[in-house]
């Protein structure tokens, strides 16, 4: 399968250093998963943020909850910062009345990932669930 960018969907296949991205608003699901340590996170995530901004600007809030799932393995600090920008975009959508649930998925015993999730939970005003799973 290859990358796909349309106004309706954004699909980016994973590489060793960049994550899988599946933004499918029609299905109410936004997913980021895998490794994320590109050399330049802005270069990788810039188009993702732009796509999301463009979609959000045209989106009329509905009663259906949009689910944002993040399940990362290794990620670098510049990704950590971009993720916050991404969550803030969802936060602005939430403030406009769109129900949103962010799910931060991590391996249960990985307290480092749990702590990262707690930081994001504190930094954005949008329902943010920490979801421990088995390895």
């Amino acid at each position: 399968m290859s990358d796909l960018t349309t106004s309706e969907r954004l699909i980016i296949e994973p590489t060793f250093t960049t994550p899988e991205i599946r933004f499918d608003p029609a299905a109410g699901r936004f997913f980021i998963g895998g490794n994320s340590y590109p050399e330049n996170s802005l270069k990788f995530y810039g188009p993702v943020l732009q796509w999301l901004q463009a979609w959000a600007s045209k989106h009329t809030p509905t009663s259906e909850t949009l689910t944002v799932e993040v399940r990362l393995e290794y990620f670098n600090t510049s990704t950590a910062k971009v993720l916050l920008d991404l969550f803030r975009l969802f936060e602005s959508l939430y403030e406009r009345g769109q129900p949103i649930q962010i799910r931060w998925i991590y391996v249960a015993e990985d307290t480092e990932m749990e702590d990262a999730g707690i930081d994001y939970q504190a930094a954005v005003k949008v329902p943010f669930e920490l979801v421990p799973v088995d390895e």
């Binding site: 590109p38 050399e39 330049n40 996170s41 802005l42 270069k43 670098n76 600090t77 510049s78 950590a80 910062k81």
Partner: peptide
């Protein structure tokens, strides 16, 4: 903010 090379100054 980000550096020109896309780093977050957090490494």
């Amino acid at each position: 903010s980000y550096s020109d090379s896309g780093g977050a100054g957090l490494g």
